[in-house]
Simulated scan of single mutants.
Amino acid sequence: MTEVAQSEKPAMLFHMVPGAPRPVAPFSHAVECGGFVFVTGQMPDSPADTGVLPEGVVQQTRNVMGNLTTVLKAIGLGLDDVVAVRAYLTRFHDDYGSFNETYREFFPADRLPARTCVGVTGLAYGALVEIDLIARR
């Protein structure tokens, strides 16, 4: 019987980003493994005002995308490296259209990441939107 060499697990890097919003739970801002970067869902607050949210899904979406951009930039990536997005909306039927219009502002029409968007019953801080993503290094 021949032995098959077992491949080593890829190294993982755990990132806590200075200047990004303070986590609302025990997690890293991003984790890298095997050439992919998994960015934790970001909330619509700001690093300066933890838990303070702007009114409406449009501004909350802009804040979330800004927070995601902060995390990506700190580890040498940008939105053009994003391959998949998951978005969570608490008022899905009311906010889906406005969310989509705002979200589109951040990606070129010919480079939209794969995406899932779901309605949820609640998010931290009573937020209307939360987004996580996967990027490729």
Rank of each mutant, 00 (worst) to 15 (best):
M1V: 13
E3H: 13
A5F: 05
S7C: 05
S7F: 07
E8M: 11
K9W: 02
H15V: 09
H15F: 15
H15I: 09
V17D: 13
P18G: 06
P18E: 15
P18H: 09
A20Y: 11
P26Q: 14
V31W: 09
G35N: 10
F38I: 05
V39K: 03
V39Q: 02
G41F: 02
P44F: 01
P44G: 00
P44W: 01
D45G: 11
T50G: 09
G51A: 07
V52L: 07
P54S: 03
E55T: 03
Q60E: 01
Q60D: 00
R62V: 05
N63M: 14
V64I: 02
V64S: 01
V64Y: 02
M65R: 00
M65C: 03
T69Q: 15
T69R: 15
L72R: 13
A74I: 13
I75R: 07
G78Y: 08
V82T: 11
V82W: 08
V83M: 11
A84C: 05
A87R: 02
A87Y: 00
L89E: 00
T90I: 06
R91K: 06
D94T: 11
D95Y: 00
G97R: 15
F99L: 01
N100K: 09
E101M: 12
T102F: 07
R104W: 03
E105K: 00
E105W: 02
P108R: 14
P108F: 13
A109F: 13
A109G: 07
V118M: 14
V118A: 15
V120K: 04
T121D: 13
G122V: 04
G122I: 04
G122W: 05
Y125P: 08
E130D: 02
R137D: 07
